[in-house]
Structure formats: structure tokens, C-alpha cells
Deep mutational scan, measured.
Amino acid sequence: TEEYTYTDKEKADRAAKEWANRGYTVTVTQDGPTYRVRVG
């Protein structure tokens, strides 16, 4: 499991979509002003 942190919702959504397109399980959680994209 890897985790990426973004401050921009659009970038987080785009990253999540790209990982999902590659067949990974993706979870996006909002943590205050940041968005965490957990992959795998």
C-alpha cells in the first residue's frame, strides 16, 4: 500500500482515476486541507 498526499482536490481525483484505470484499488480520504490517495 502506498499513500500520496495532495493539497489540490482536482489533482487527487486525477491521480485516483489514473491508478484505478491501471487496476489498483484506490481510496481517497480528506484530511483537513489535504487529500490522501491510498493505492493498493
Results as ranks from 00 to 15, higher is better:
T1L: 12
T1P: 11
T1A: 12
T1E: 12
T1H: 13
T1N: 09
E2L: 15
E2V: 15
E2D: 11
E2F: 15
E2N: 14
E2R: 15
E3Q: 06
E3H: 06
E3S: 06
E3K: 04
E3L: 08
E3D: 08
E3G: 05
E3Y: 11
Y4K: 03
Y4Q: 04
Y4L: 06
Y4D: 03
Y4T: 04
Y4I: 05
Y4W: 09
T5P: 04
T5C: 09
T5A: 08
T5F: 14
T5I: 14
T5H: 09
T5Y: 13
T5V: 14
T5S: 08
Y6D: 01
Y6R: 00
Y6G: 03
Y6K: 00
Y6E: 01
T7F: 13
T7W: 13
T7M: 11
T7V: 09
T7G: 08
T7P: 10
D8N: 10
D8G: 04
D8S: 13
D8L: 05
D8P: 01
K9E: 05
K9M: 07
K9P: 10
K9I: 06
K9A: 09
K9F: 12
E10L: 09
E10A: 12
E10G: 09
E10Q: 10
K11V: 12
K11F: 09
K11H: 12
K11E: 15
K11S: 15
K11P: 05
K11W: 07
K11G: 10
K11T: 14
K11D: 14
A12S: 04
A12V: 03
A12T: 03
A12E: 00
A12Y: 02
A12I: 01
D13W: 14
D13M: 15
D13E: 14
D13F: 15
D13P: 00
D13L: 15
D13V: 12
D13Y: 15
R14L: 12
R14W: 11
R14D: 11
R14K: 13
R14V: 11
R14I: 12
R14Y: 10
A15P: 00
A15G: 04
A16S: 05
A16E: 04
A16D: 01
K17P: 00
K17D: 08
K17Y: 10
K17E: 13
K17H: 09
K17S: 10
K17N: 10
E18V: 08
E18I: 11
E18L: 10
E18H: 12
E18N: 07
E18R: 08
E18W: 15
W19N: 01
W19S: 01
W19P: 00
A20R: 14
A20N: 07
A20H: 08
A20K: 11
A20L: 13
A20P: 01
A20V: 11
A20D: 04
N21M: 13
N21Y: 09
N21C: 09
N21Q: 13
N21H: 09
N21L: 13
R22D: 05
R22I: 06
R22Y: 06
R22H: 07
G23Q: 02
G23M: 02
G23W: 02
G23D: 02
G23N: 03
G23V: 00
G23K: 02
G23R: 02
G23H: 03
Y24K: 04
Y24L: 05
Y24R: 04
Y24D: 01
Y24N: 03
Y24A: 04
T25R: 10
T25D: 09
T25G: 05
T25E: 11
V26E: 00
V26S: 03
V26Q: 00
V26L: 02
V26Y: 02
V26N: 00
V26W: 01
T27G: 04
T27I: 10
T27K: 07
T27A: 07
T27W: 09
T27N: 07
V28T: 05
V28C: 06
V28Q: 05
T29S: 09
Q30W: 07
Q30S: 08
Q30V: 10
Q30P: 05
Q30H: 09
Q30T: 08
Q30F: 07
D31P: 01
D31E: 12
D31M: 08
D31G: 03
G32P: 07
G32A: 02
G32R: 01
G32H: 03
G32E: 02
G32K: 01
G32T: 02
G32F: 03
P33M: 11
P33W: 08
P33S: 13
P33N: 14
P33E: 14
P33L: 12
T34P: 13
T34F: 15
T34V: 15
T34S: 08
T34A: 08
T34Y: 15
Y35D: 00
Y35A: 01
Y35S: 01
Y35C: 03
Y35M: 03
Y35H: 04
Y35P: 00
Y35K: 00
R36L: 13
R36S: 08
R36I: 15
R36A: 06
R36M: 08
R36V: 15
R36G: 03
V37L: 09
V37F: 04
V37N: 00
V37K: 00
V37Q: 00
V37G: 00
V37M: 04
V37D: 01
R38W: 12
R38M: 13
R38G: 05
R38S: 14
R38E: 11
R38A: 11
R38H: 14
V39A: 03
V39E: 01
V39W: 04
V39M: 03
V39N: 01
G40R: 13
G40K: 13
G40F: 15
G40D: 14
G40L: 13
G40W: 15
